[in-house]
Design a protein around this nucleic acid. Structure first.
Lengths: 148, 148
DNA sequence: GTTGCTGCAAACCCTTTGCATAGGA
DNA sequence: TCCTATGCAAAGGGTTTGCAGCAAC
């Protein structure tokens, strides 16, 4: 079923006058295996470990393209670097981030989504994307925090 | 009325064994004059223009303290640097950010706030802070975007 | 063959830090 | 006096970029 994604990627690149290179294919395939919130460097390092030699620069450049076509989502999870996540077959969601263990919990609340649309409509604002992050302590870390 | 804020600042610093220096007073007073979303460098530059010579490093260091005591809020508004805003006399709010003109519109929606609390409660997550940004086009820029 | 891509290293940008000196308490 | 703060410049960390050689098309 991923064939369609590679096909779309190829079509998009062609449409933009860009090339369907082996590095781009490799990066796409590695991204599609992911179910976590990774950063560009992490992806590059994991690829290197797997014997896939693609430079960091190319990873950054390709993640940009994949973001543009919606294959990955970019998220600011409270670190100084960006995180990415594979969005294939998934819908928009928000994040809870544990300040102690860095765990990320995803959630969707339809009312929150709906309300955002209403707010924008009432202000004449055209939404392109939206991102809600809640920082705090997950259930495992709350007891640990009490001790301090 | 700002006297109380300076007094609190002084008390906080004293409690932490820190010093109530003239640079810190100057930075606090400049921050209190602001009603916009500024970054550290901008604040430092504006201060320099006004003849107030405080180093960038001190501005960063002091903004951290002011953030800790809630005088300023830190926000990621889609740039690679942080933005700050004076929070004195203000409540938590969310941001609409225009991707064309960079304008920032603030809003609060009680239902969104409430829903976030409910989601966290149901997941056993203890909220420390939360931040919702909506990126898109403001009413002034929507017509300009059509032309492209 | 043409044109865009890659890898490398250097550049960049924002932010933090080490250190010598200044200045609150 | 004691000890933290400041300013400077350098380091840091993530990301982007210029360029020469390389690979799609």
């Amino acid at each position: 079923m991923n064939d369609a994604i590679f096909e779309n990627f190829k079509k998009f690149l062609h449409k933009e006058g860009l090339k369907y290179t082996s590095e781009r294919k490799i990066i796409l395939s590695e991204v599609l295996k992911r179910r976590d919130h990774f950063d560009a460097d992490e992806l590059a390092a994991d690829m290197r470990t797997s014997g896939l030699k693609v430079s960091r620069a190319t990873v950054y450049r390709t993640l940009d393209i994949l973001h543009e076509i919606g294959v990955v989502n970019k998220a600011s999870l409270g670190h100084k670097h960006q995180h990415y996540e594979n969005m294939v077959g998934r819908q928009h969601h928000d994040h809870l981030v544990c300040l102690n263990c860095d765990k990320v919990i995803e959630f969707v609340d339809e009312e929150i989504e709906q309300k955002q649309i209403e707010v924008c409509k009432s202000l004449g604002f055209e939404i392109k994307r939206h991102t809600l992050q809640i920082f705090g302590y997950c259930s495992y870390c709350i007891p640990l925090m009490k001790d301090k």
